[in-house]
Design a protein around this nucleic acid. Structure first.
Lengths: 143, 143
DNA sequence: CCTCAATAGTCAGTCTTACTGACCAAATCC
DNA sequence: GGATTTGGTCAGTAAGACTGACTATTGAGG
């Protein structure tokens, strides 16, 4: 490829991080997490999230999201609790085991960010992150 | 998310481009291209490529790549020609119909690059692309 | 209040797109 | 010139996505 589109380079970088994280999580002994489960789990917030919200953000149907949450729940990574604000809905929250995995993932993510900063230098890295953040404004329909 | 990891932002951008391109291709009347077929087709080069190479670059097994090439061939997007340099191998090359789709895709990609340049400014865009290219050195095992 | 459209979620069934394992034929190594 | 590597296919299976139909709750209008 003579001059690859920025999007391809972005994809390559994102895929690299996903692989590094999933390897580390596997190495830490969590071998029952599939990539799809992990991607769904990555959407979790501390205050809980609805299945429908996971689906929107991950761009999958609510049925698919529901299956993934089932799997995560069965493996004790998350719990479903009733949403106090809406009796139709249930909130997906991290269970203790999920919080442990999250810690492992966060640690790898920070390590990669340091590696990238070392490679580009602090200044270029900051500019890079700022550009990504600005581009999100025109590429991310979910804020 | 308070401070999303750069990789998430990269993923969001890459996904946006893939969606824009696939929408345009669909709108141009090519409705028999699945996302997986398109991703495989995106690896094609003018001088032809081997199925095994597609597999390596797309990080899928050669069997999966072979199936996708079959589908692309059946839909007249590509052809398989014997590799003059190796009688075991066959080169996957774009067929006329494939070249038409490629034109549509390239057009959208250029349009998006212009939009991004408008949003960031030419200077920041250039720096952004340079940073992506540099990061590729440490994130892309296939050079 | 009371209907009724919208929303949160599930169930059932299907298709796409991966995977593993076994295998063949040509090329390359020693 | 036999053994190993490489390019690719065939067969079978599983993960993960989709559509469509359905239930229960919410919230808005009359």
């Amino acid at each position: 490829m003579a001059d690859p589109h920025p999007a391809l380079l972005m994809f390559i970088g994102a895929r690299y991080v996903e692989q590094r994280v999933s390897e580390a999580v596997l190495a830490a002994g969590y071998d029952d997490l599939t990539p799809a489960m992990a991607r769904a789990a990555a959407r979790l917030r501390d205050d809980g999230i609805r299945v429908t919200e996971i689906a929107e953000q991950a761009r999958i149907t609510k049925q698919s999201a529901s299956v993934l949450v089932d799997l995560l729940e069965r493996a004790s990574y998350v719990e479903r609790v009733p949403d106090p604000a809406d009796a139709r809905a249930r909130l997906v929250v991290l269970a203790p085991r999920g919080r442990e995995v999250q810690k492992v993932a966060r640690r790898v993510e920070r390590a990669i960010e340091r590696e990238w900063t070392r490679h580009l230098g602090a200044e270029r890295m900051a500019a890079f992150k700022a550009a990504l953040t600005d581009l999100r404004e025109i590429t991310d329909p979910y804020r």
